[in-house]
Write a protein that binds this DNA or RNA. Structure first.
Length: 305
DNA sequence: AATACGGGGAG
DNA sequence: CTCCCAGTATT
């Protein structure tokens, strides 16, 4: 959960997750759709599937010990493997996260691209770790903490830094690490229609290969498509517009309520409680709430969380 | 080496 | 707006 996601964001998800799936065995035996519903809103949903798969393998074959063996599990990369192995087994391997990369980039005044920076930071951290009397877990924690609290992205406090003496970047820490040029934003528009009948909602599984694969959504078409044109001709009721940013794409989803025509025939029809438990992409969740307010507010139903 | 992959926190 | 978050897998 913590991969590329802030601790304060993760915390409530983690608590709910651990209450529901308290052991590896429980996790391995869980239904993937339910896992995704607990993950819903966190993003990077492949992490969820990978964690599930990793739990299955571990329950089947036992817990790894060495970093290299952890590394084989899906979703466990260099950072996570090193973090686990150094903490759980005291293995002297460097856990290099964004903090450590930044600390190293400034310390060595390096503007290398991310891949090389990461490798260099790992060697740097590991060589000093071995010279230190510090436990590997403590060393890793200390370096990450230094990056989070002192060598921070926006306001590095070089006066408080224990490495300032030897640091090559302290004159102008903001030059490191090098920022990659920002990509031009791509605008994408979708029409979303919300099939509703007799208190039920029609959803489909997001097809594989793109964003939100495997989650559930209301039918969606690019606005240029022929289906869209046909749809507009059916004069649906507008629900509203939802904007959402995904990396360098800016999405606009225009949502409409349709009660009869143009439903794909492979929809899953859910009542409101079932809809609430399905994992939906954030913008589709917002549309669900628009629809709920419009259609069933009078019945006293609560919005989706 | 570069890109896809979410969503949100914070300045 | 921008940058970046206790990264990983794929190309």
């Amino acid at each position: 959960m913590l991969q590329q996601t802030q601790v304060t964001t993760v915390l409530p998800y983690y608590e709910r997750w651990m209450a529901r799936f308290p052991t590896l065995k429980a996790l391995a035996a869980a239904d993937e759709q339910e896992l995704l519903s607990y993950w819903q809103g966190l993003g990077y949903y492949s992490r969820c599937r990978n964690l599930h798969e990793a739990a299955k393998r571990v329950v089947e074959s036992g817990l790894p010990t060495r970093s290299d063996d952890w590394r084989v599990l899906p979703g466990i990369g260099a950072y996570t493997a090193a973090a686990i192995a150094s903490i759980s087994a005291g293995e002297p391997v460097a856990a290099v996260d964004g903090n450590v990369e930044r600390v190293y980039a400034r310390f060595a005044a390096s503007q290398e691209p991310k891949a090389r920076l990461s490798t260099a930071a790992r060697k740097w951290s590991e060589s000093h770790m071995r010279l230190s009397t510090c436990e590997p877990a403590q060393w890793n924690q200390a370096l990450m903490e230094l990056g989070a609290r002192i060598c921070s992205p926006r306001n590095p406090d070089c006066r408080a830094c224990p490495l300032a003496n030897a640091c090559q970047g302290k004159g102008d820490p903001h030059r490191f690490p090098a920022k990659k040029p920002s990509r031009t934003v791509v605008e994408i528009s979708y029409t979303v229609w919300v099939p509703a009948r007799e208190g039920r909602w029609g959803v489909r599984r997001v097809p594989p290969g793109g964003w939100w694969a495997g989650l559930w959504e209301f039918p969606r078409r690019a606005e240029e498509s022929a289906l869209h044109q046909e749809f507009v001709g059916a004069s649906p009721r507008g629900l509203g517009e939802v904007r959402h940013q995904v990396t360098h794409h800016r999405l606009t989803l225009r949502a409409f309520l349709v009660e009869e025509a143009l439903w794909p025939n492979d929809l899953d029809w859910l009542d409101t409680d079932e809809l609430k438990r399905r994992a939906m992409p954030a913008p589709q969740r917002k549309i669900a709430n628009l629809a709920l307010r419009k259609v069933v507010a009078a019945n006293g139903l609560e919005p989706l969380t």
